[in-house]
Design a protein around this nucleic acid. Structure first.
Lengths: 204, 204
DNA sequence: GTGACAGTGTTGACAATGTCAACAAGAGTG
DNA sequence: CACTCTTGTTGACATTGTCAACACTGTCAC
């Protein structure tokens, strides 16, 4: 019945902590994650997590990093299928980005909310988010080479596109957007507007 | 020496609480605001705030609402000066929006961070944010009538524009953007891209 | 004026929480 | 088996939000 190589009391507590914390965040928001509760759910005491993370912040950072990796994987997955012409690839990335946020709102909030993680800059987190940016830049470069979008600094364009989808995701999550509005349409219009704006540098 | 009509012990504690909480947020982030600390700074006890706000969340909501009003005022203030042609007005709004966030990062975070305020939906907060949206819609309508931007649903366009500036502000505040990037340029490029995208519906 | 009354502020207490120090138990090594 | 490192447990403490009981202050009818 041993799950894996349960080398010790719990087996692989560190990974379990991250996993369980993510689950708790999805269920009851980041505020519901307490060291005692998470220990209890895993059958260990409140002090056990401190053998794997120096403090609660470190644990939450690990959860946030895992979220970025998951998001990154998802954005990259649409790669194989549609390499059609037009900027379909970029649009799909934007759409998947927002969908991820809507499916995991509390987790997404944690990923960007330095508020909960406020302290030093977390290099791991920065790195995970940086990987996302690099992927976006790569895709933008491809589209540039195809002449589908304007040929400016791809990094700056990536920031603009990221801002748009992150902003939309954030506003949706925080319920700042009228629930009567069709979300799919809004996502589509947002990505379309950005893409149009990145193409139309005709008279500037 | 009496400041105002100090009708009672403190005079106008409710307003002072909101003001002081905002100051503390600017100084040390939202986490530094504790009922005890804020009371201490105002020379009252830890229990005093509970005569004016049912709990800490309610106080923070009041602070957030004040932030929205302040932001709204700032966005509207550029109104008189430049009513020049082109979409300069909208661009300036976007720029002022992001600047406000950069100048008051912790306050801005609180305004959008339901995390700290998580509980019921806060109607006051929603209302304050709604006023911001309505102003934006109005400006968009003006530009539409001038034929400067596309004639779609102004509400949807407002959401797109709001998403872009909010996303940019958020990424900047959370230090997700390379500090070597010129912020002014990035703000300008973001607003420009959105405006271009709202104009170019030629081949769609 | 004076006494009731409501508004405002204070204090004691409590539960929840993050965290640390001291202790203990499993796991690997000689 | 003895030793030691890793991992987990427990007791304790400070901080914090919050409530209940109490106290002070101004107001107002009489």
């Amino acid at each position: 019945m041993a799950e894996r190589a349960r080398t010790y009391h719990h087996g692989d507590l560190r990974a379990s902590l991250v996993e369980e914390a993510a689950a708790m965040i999805s269920e009851g928001g980041a505020a519901s994650v307490t060291m005692r509760a998470i220990g209890s759910r895993l059958g260990v005491s409140r002090g056990a997590p401190y053998r794997h993370f120096p403090d609660k912040t470190a644990l939450l950072v690990a959860v946030a990093v895992a979220g970025f990796k998951r998001l990154n994987r998802r954005l990259g997955s649409g790669d194989a299928g549609v390499s059609s012409s037009s900027v379909e690839r970029l649009r799909r990335m934007g759409e998947q980005y927002v969908r991820f946020a809507l499916e995991h709102p509390a987790h997404y909030r944690l990923m960007y909310g330095k508020e909960a993680l406020e302290r030093q800059d977390q290099p791991e987190l920065r790195k995970a988010a940086g990987a996302l940016l690099e992927n976006l830049i790569d895709v933008i470069r491809v589209h540039q080479q195809r002449g589908e979008i304007d040929g400016g600094d791809p990094r700056a364009q990536a920031y603009v596109a990221w801002s748009a989808v992150h902003g939309l995701a954030s506003l949706l999550i925080e319920r700042q957007i009228d629930p009567n509005v069709n979300v799919d349409d809004l996502i589509r219009q947002t990505t379309q507007t950005i893409l149009d704006g990145m193409r139309d540098r005709s008279q500037d």
